[in-house]
Measured scan of single mutants.
Amino acid sequence: MSGNGNAAATAEENSPKMRVIRVGTRKSQLARIQTDSVVATLKASYPGLQFEIIAMSTTGDKILDTALSKIGEKSLFTKELEHALEKNEVDLVVHSLKDLPTVLPPGFTIGAICKRENPHDAVVFHPKFVGKTLETLPEKSVVGTSSLRRAAQLQRKFPHLEFRSIRGNLNTRLRKLDEQQEFSAIILATAGLQRMGWHNRVGQILHPEECMYAVGQGALGVEVRAKDQDILDLVGVLHDPETLLRCIAERAFLRHLEGGCSVPVAVHTAMKDGQLYLTGGVWSLDGSDSIQETMQATIHVPAQHEDGPEDDPQLVGITARNIPRGPQLAAQNLGISLANLLLSKGAKNILDVARQLNDAH
């Protein structure tokens, strides 16, 4: 009898209710805020589980004197976190989706994509230029951005401005803007500013005609071990179906173009009346040469937790077992079709030249 009692006690200790789920994140304040929001949602869904947040620095956090596009290494903000995932030191990792490459290392998958916040870019102005827009900034004003995508589009749109690289986390960039006289304004992701509670610093939100956004911008991705079915089931509740389908289309477009950090590629997606609209573009580094096109596809946005595919093969690095396969494939095909259209119009040449120029500098 006593033996059975011990077995029952052991089973209770090993039951999922007692389990601590370890969540990996970057150390920056924004990353911690984003991770806290994901953990809060998981806690609400699984009140019996405990969650421990483990923060670590990544290569991208450490190399702050070089433009991201020049470092010449993929997975700048993800490699150390993936290493911890691989060694079973954490069970899942919360990322900004735009930091996750469209091809993940073997053994990993994006197990959830959370509801997207505003994906557009924002302009934050130096205190002396508050009330201005990019259009009304004085001639030769210097605007800071760490992104080739932003610089290429904005140089084309605002030729009277000069664009220079600015690195560091959000706090560091804002301090550089406010305390030094080098920059009249800087460009940042609206979602990051909003998550930090800095709505009052948003001086201008850039519309798609001015600057399309990065693939996955404004959404959070939760990376897990691809074979860890328990954790895949656990994080599945975080999937937002519309965000998922938009981001599958965007990531398929980028992957098929073979774009990345070192080339200016941008997108804009919208879901309306059962249609998914995808606009994508590529630019030369100075913005003088560009190709942009829009395509659409009829896609039914499923309700969360309709029964999805059981075999769960990944699409552009994403596993969404609780979302039907048909809409996911339709979104992926839309991204591939748009990429093929741009490639047929000469996108590869623009991107190759951009890559060579970026590598040469």
Rank of each mutant, 00 (worst) to 15 (best):
V20F: 09
I21A: 13
V23S: 02
V23E: 00
G24L: 09
T25R: 08
R26I: 00
R26H: 01
Q29I: 06
L30R: 01
A31V: 01
S37G: 08
V39T: 08
A40E: 11
T41F: 08
T41V: 09
L42Q: 00
L42M: 09
A44Q: 10
A44H: 10
A44V: 13
A44R: 13
P47S: 11
L49H: 11
L49F: 06
L49R: 06
Q50K: 14
E52T: 11
I53V: 11
A55F: 15
S57N: 08
T58N: 12
T58Y: 00
T58V: 08
G60P: 02
G60K: 02
D61W: 06
K62I: 15
I63D: 01
L64F: 09
L64H: 15
D65A: 07
D65S: 10
D65G: 08
L68D: 09
S69E: 12
K70W: 09
K70I: 13
I71F: 11
I71P: 07
K74W: 03
S75A: 13
S75H: 08
F77K: 00
F77W: 10
T78N: 10
K79A: 10
E80S: 09
L81E: 03
L81I: 13
L81F: 12
E82V: 06
E82L: 07
E82T: 07
H83W: 13
L85W: 02
L85A: 06
L85N: 01
L85R: 02
L85K: 03
K87A: 12
K87V: 07
D91Y: 05
V94T: 06
H95N: 13
L97K: 04
P101A: 13
P101E: 08
P101D: 02
P101I: 09
T102V: 06
T102Y: 14
V103I: 08
L104H: 10
L104A: 08
L104Y: 08
P106Y: 06
G107F: 13
F108A: 00
F108E: 15
I110D: 04
I110A: 01
G111I: 01
G111Y: 02
G111C: 03
A112T: 09
I113L: 14
I113M: 03
I113K: 02
C114E: 02
E117Y: 11
E117N: 06
P119C: 10
P119M: 02
H120I: 06
D121C: 10
A122R: 03
V123W: 01
V124F: 06
F125N: 09
F129K: 04
F129R: 05
F129N: 01
V130E: 15
L134M: 10
E135N: 07
T136G: 09
T136P: 05
P138D: 10
E139S: 09
E139K: 15
E139H: 14
E139A: 13
K140P: 11
K140Y: 09
K140R: 10
V142D: 08
V142T: 11
V143E: 04
V143K: 04
V143H: 03
G144W: 04
S146G: 11
S146Y: 06
S146L: 04
R149T: 02
R149V: 02
R150M: 05
A151K: 07
A151H: 11
A152T: 13
L154K: 05
Q155L: 09
Q155V: 10
Q155K: 13
K157I: 10
F158Q: 09
F158G: 08
L161A: 05
E162Y: 15
F163S: 08
F163G: 09
F163A: 12
R164M: 12
S165Y: 10
R167P: 04
G168A: 03
N169P: 02
L170E: 07
L170A: 08
L170Y: 15
L170D: 02
N171A: 10
N171I: 10
R173W: 01
R173L: 03
L174G: 04
R175V: 13
K176W: 10
K176T: 11
L177I: 07
D178Q: 07
D178T: 07
D178W: 06
Q180W: 06
Q180S: 10
Q181W: 10
I187R: 03
I187C: 06
L188H: 12
A189V: 02
T190W: 14
A191W: 01
A191C: 04
G192W: 01
L193Q: 07
L193W: 00
Q194V: 13
M196S: 05
W198A: 13
W198M: 15
H199I: 13
R201H: 01
R201C: 07
R201F: 04
V202R: 09
G203I: 03
G203H: 00
Q204G: 07
Q204C: 00
L206Q: 03
H207C: 11
P208T: 08
E210T: 07
C211G: 08
A214S: 06
V215D: 03
G216V: 03
G216R: 03
Q217E: 04
G218H: 01
G218S: 01
A219T: 06
G221E: 00
E223C: 14
V224F: 14
V224D: 02
A226G: 11
D228N: 14
D228R: 13
D230R: 12
I231G: 06
L232R: 04
L232T: 12
D233N: 13
G236M: 01
G236F: 02
G236Y: 00
H239C: 09
H239F: 00
D240F: 10
P241A: 07
E242K: 11
T243P: 06
L244R: 03
L244Y: 14
L245P: 01
L245H: 09
L245S: 01
I248W: 05
I248C: 01
A249I: 02
A249Q: 01
R251G: 02
A252E: 08
L254Y: 00
R255G: 11
H256P: 05
G260V: 15
S262E: 15
V265G: 04
A266S: 07
H268P: 04
A270R: 13
K272W: 15
K272Q: 09
Q275G: 15
L276V: 13
Y277C: 08
Y277D: 11
Y277N: 10
G281A: 12
V282M: 08
W283M: 01
S284I: 15
L285V: 09
L285S: 05
L285T: 10
D286P: 08
D286K: 06
G287L: 06
G287E: 01
S288V: 12
S288A: 13
S290I: 15
S290N: 10
I291G: 07
I291V: 07
T294V: 13
M295L: 13
A297E: 05
A297G: 10
T298H: 08
I299Y: 13
I299V: 13
I299R: 08
I299A: 12
A303M: 04
A303W: 01
Q304W: 06
H305K: 03
H305T: 00
E306K: 15
E306D: 07
D307C: 10
P309T: 07
E310L: 10
D311W: 08
V316P: 06
G317L: 03
G317R: 04
I318A: 04
I318L: 05
A320I: 01
A320Q: 03
A320D: 09
R321I: 10
R321M: 07
P324R: 13
P324L: 12
R325G: 14
R325V: 04
P327Q: 14
Q328S: 14
Q328E: 13
A331T: 08
A331M: 04
Q332S: 15
L334W: 08
L334H: 00
S337V: 15
S337T: 14
S337K: 05
A339R: 04
L341Y: 07
L342G: 05
L343V: 14
L343N: 15
S344M: 05
S344D: 15
S344Q: 06
K345R: 03
G346P: 00
K348S: 15
N349W: 15
N349H: 06
L351S: 07
D352L: 12
D352F: 14
V353N: 15
Q356T: 03
Q356L: 09
N358M: 15
A360P: 02
A360I: 05
